[in-house]
């Protein structure tokens, strides 16, 4: 009996610890969701006080919050479009062609991912100040495109590397010109990778604080808004935005999973 209990514990303790760690990761999200329904007792309090739906019905109440969210969405969208296009082109070149400069280009792509944001943020600021470029929307966009490109290249390249090059040969064999081959075979097959890269870009851009902080001038994105609000009291509506972001992202991930499962079952 003792042996069996010992055995049972030996089999489960790792999972037990793992679930505890997951609880640690989940706790702040639960708190954010909870705080989105909280009416704080005063401006600087972060404690639970009483239940309310006001924050959800009046998201745009705090001055500047919705403007900041809108700005983040605009920058995120544009940064995603630029980075996805530029990064996808690079991924195609790297995955489909052998050429002399490939190792050098790989280093150029890798470095931004390994450099601390602090260094990238300050260096861009140094560049813009030296070049007398006015800080604001466009400098933020330039910075975001820069750090998203590498992630797009890596994501799309992984998808292309997993793709059978014979499919393109088959298309050419079946009278598809190079353009038709790309349009009818390569692009549709690479699309899941491109979409994943775009979603990643958007979330990286939307959530970036450190690099944005150095290059925003007086432009306020959502993370900048939260940072600034921290000094004078964070309105509870910020938690509504946080909860909504979480819900949207979770739905997207679960939806792709369901699609993938459906694909896997028929395979």
């Amino acid at each position: 009996m003792n042996y069996r209990i010992g055995r049972w514990i030996a089999d489960r303790w790792v999972m037990g610890v793992g679930l505890l760690v997951l609880a640690y990761l989940a706790l702040p999200i639960i708190v954010v969701a909870g705080l989105s329904f909280n009416r704080p007792s005063n401006r600087l309090s972060y404690d639970f006080n009483e239940f309310t739906l006001d924050n959800w019905t009046n998201v745009c109440g705090p001055a500047g919050l919705c403007d900041a969210v809108l700005r983040s969405v605009q920058i995120g969208f544009l940064a995603t479009v630029f980075a996805t296009v530029l990064g996808t082109l690079m991924a195609f070149a790297l995955a489909r062609h052998k050429f002399f400069a490939r190792p050098a280009v790989n280093v150029i792509i890798f470095l931004p991912m390994a450099t601390p944001e602090l260094v990238m943020g300050t260096s861009l600021l140094a560049l813009f100040v030296t070049g007398s470029v006015a800080l604001g929307f466009w400098t933020i966009l330039i910075a975001h495109v820069m750090f998203c490109i590498s992630f797009v290249v890596v994501t799309v390249k992984a998808r292309l590397a997993g793709m059978d090059a014979r499919l393109e040969e088959a298309a050419m064999d079946l009278y598809a010109t190079p353009f038709q081959t790309f349009r009818r075979v390569t692009l549709p097959l690479a699309l899941p990778g491109i979409v994943a890269a775009a979603l990643l870009s958007f979330s990286l851009s939307f959530d970036d604080f450190i690099i944005t902080n150095f290059n925003s001038g007086t432009t306020v994105t959502f993370p900048m808004y939260v940072w600034g609000a921290n000094q004078r009291g964070v309105p509870p509506q910020v938690n509504v935005i946080g909860t909504a972001m979480f819900a949207i992202a979770l739905l997207l991930v679960l939806a792709t999973n369901v699609r993938r499962r459906r694909g896997a079952r028929v395979a």
Binding site: R166, E169, D173, L174
Partner: peptide, 27 residues
């Protein structure tokens, strides 16, 4: 390849995974 009246049955087939049987054959 697309200019030749020659077609190939590839090793391990190379069927287009994103197209159904009809569209594969009609390609």
């Amino acid at each position: 390849p697309y200019q030749r009246p020659v077609n190939t049955v590839f090793q391990s087939y190379a069927l287009f995974p994103h197209l159904d049987v009809f569209e594969n054959v009609a390609f």
